[in-house]
Every structure is written in C-alpha cells, then in structure tokens.
C-alpha cells in the first residue's frame, strides 16, 4: 500500500494557545495503492484541505489518534521536508508567494534538497535546465515565467499550472492535488489534466481533491470518496461522482447521519 490512513483524528490549535482545540478530522480511513487515482469530494469546510495539510506535515495541527503510513512507514513523525523527500507532494489549494526568489532557483533548490535528503547527488545546472525546459514546454509554460519570483503576480490559473510543473520536475510517488482545477479556464484545465495524466504510471498514486465532476472527466479516478464533517462517508467507483453531481451532497450527508 502506498498510503494507508487509519482512523485518523486531528485537531487544529487556535493561534494564541487559548480556546478549545477544534477537531476537524474525525476518524478518517483511506487506503491508496500504487498506480491508483482516488478522488475526494465533499462540501466546503468538510476537512479536505486539512487532511492534505496533516499528511504533508503543516504545523498547527495535532494528530490525536490513528495513523498514516506512507510506503509502510510512519508518516506523522517526519518533518515536512522529509515527507517531500520520500515522495509525497501536495499541490496546494492556495500556492504561496515568495517575493524575490526566481521560480527557477526555487525549483532547483527544492529538487537538490530532496536529492540531498535521499543521499543522492545534486543535479548539475545544465542537466537541471534541460529537465525544466522539457517539462515546462509540455505544460505550455514560458521560460520568462520561470524567471519571475515564485507565484508573485501570477494569475490563479498560472499558479496551478506551476504546481503541476513542480510535480513533473520533482517526480513524487504520491501526488495530493487540492483543487488543482479551481481558477482554471477550460483550455488550462485540459493542459493541467494532461500534465497530471502524463505522470500517471504503475508506481505513482494520486489523491485528487475536487468539487467538480468535470476534472474527473479528464483525470479518471479508480475510486471516489465522499467526505463530510471530517470523515469519509461513502466510497465507490467513478459513478459515485456522477451520482453526486446529480443529487448534491445533501442526500449523502443525511444518509450518513
């Protein structure tokens, strides 16, 4: 199993150390194998992004019970950068701006830090440039874009496209895509989906968080999960997404309650 989440519970601590910790993930289980694509759909605020943050190790959350295994290894004890080096990638719902740091430099530092953490040699500058050029071209990203500071002044769609570029360059084992389709126009959606599909393979798994069936027309999932109120309330095949699109969440959420 590539990712195994067992009865996971996680709380978020309020900023100032005061007030109640709020439970957001409330006993969630999920198994995802290599080569598989799983989609997670669920209403706003159901905890989808939180799940992705907890998996990636974002500070501010606390896992109160349950476990998450990545490639059979405990994930939750690792620092975020160690998780990344082991092959976990999170394409974020809201990519962050880093002023003054050219995208190219950021990509290079990221790739070489991961390689270093894995005990591999760093990639030379010419090899790296070749790699990026090739991947950028496939995604219709200009080299000018890569000279700009990370995400600064990028349009919503451009940010998402760049997240996919990172993924293509870093070649992770598990890609968690949090609303990679939000803010994309129809053509961009296709480019991004093609980029994701190009990475599909027998060794790689995908966890695709989305609100819309439309994305799943392009990136066809093997399994679809419906998440509500911090847990998965229903799992099924691709047809579940269609059902959801027809009937809305209400029916499912009431069923589960």
């Amino acid at each position: 199993m590539l990712l195994e989440v067992k009865d996971l519970r996680a709380v978020v601590r309020p900023e100032e150390d005061e007030g109640e910790a709020k439970e957001i993930i409330k006993g969630l289980s999920l198994s995802l194998d290599r080569g598989e694509v799983h989609a997670i759909m669920g209403p706003n605020g159901s905890g989808k992004s939180t799940l992705s943050h907890v998996l990636a190790g974002k500070p501010g959350y606390e896992v109160t019970s349950g476990e998450a295994l990545f490639d059979g290894e405990d994930l939750l004890g690792l620092e975020p950068e160690e998780r990344a080096a082991k092959g976990l990638f999170l394409a974020m719902q809201y990519p962050v701006e880093i002023p003054g740091v050219p995208y190219m430099q950021f990509l290079k530092v990221a790739l070489n830090s991961q390689r270093k953490l894995r005990g591999e040699d760093e990639l030379s500058t010419p090899d790296f440039m070749r790699l990026v050029r090739e991947k950028a071209q496939a995604l219709g990203i200009s080299m000018d874009m890569l000279k700009r500071p990370v995400n600064v002044g990028f349009s919503g769609g451009e940010k998402k496209r760049m997240e996919v570029l990172q993924m293509a360059v870093l070649e992770p084992k598990l890609c968690v895509l949090d609303e990679i389709d939000s803010g994309l126009d129809i053509d961009a959606l296709k480019v991004v989906a093609d980029g994701v599909n190009a990475l599909r393979g027998p060794e790689r798994g995908f966890l695709v968080i989305t609100h819309y069936q439309r994305l799943l027309n392009y990136i066809e999932p093997d399994h679809v999960h419906i998440m509500a109120n911090g847990r998965i309330i229903r799992s099924g095949g691709p047809e579940l997404a269609h059902e959801l699109e027809r009937e809305g969440y209400a029916a499912f959420v009431e069923d589960a309650a």
Partner: peptide, 28 residues
C-alpha cells in the same frame, strides 16, 4: 509567514534553508 515556510518545506527544503531562501529573496 508560516505559510511561506511550510510551502518551501513541503517541497523538500529544510527550515533553515527555507529561511535563507526567503531572506535572499527579500534582499535580492
């Protein structure tokens, strides 16, 4: 920002290097 640090760390860049990168951007 915490978000900046996490973004870089989630890409495999250890915290101290992430800080250095952000600072280098700031003084570019």
């Amino acid at each position: 920002a915490e978000d900046q640090l996490f973004y870089l760390r989630a890409r495999g860049i250890p915290e101290e290097e992430a800080v250095a990168l952000i600072v280098n951007g700031f003084v570019r």
